[in-house]
Amino acid sequence: MEADAVLDCMGLYCPMPIIETTDKIKELEVGQVLEVIADDKGIVTDMPAWCESTGHEFLGIEEKDGEYRVYVRKKIEQ
């Protein structure tokens, strides 16, 4: 999937990937896609929950060798 910005959260545990995503998404324009790379498995359920709560769109997750690539579309200006 093509992303407009990438956030590297490798090696970070809950809740840091979510907190960093909260910061990073502010830099994007509405409609743009953020890719978050993490190795904490919690992100598989945490990111959809974060999206549901904040109103951003959860696009999906790709997993390869314990590395998760999560895609989020910015839906609203916070």
Binding site: C14, I18, I19, T21, A49, S53
Partner: peptide, 12 residues
């Protein structure tokens, strides 16, 4: 603090 910061990050 883990829950507090996450909740704040979720817009609460």
């Amino acid at each position: 603090f883990n829950i507090a910061t996450t909740a704040a990050g979720m817009g609460m």
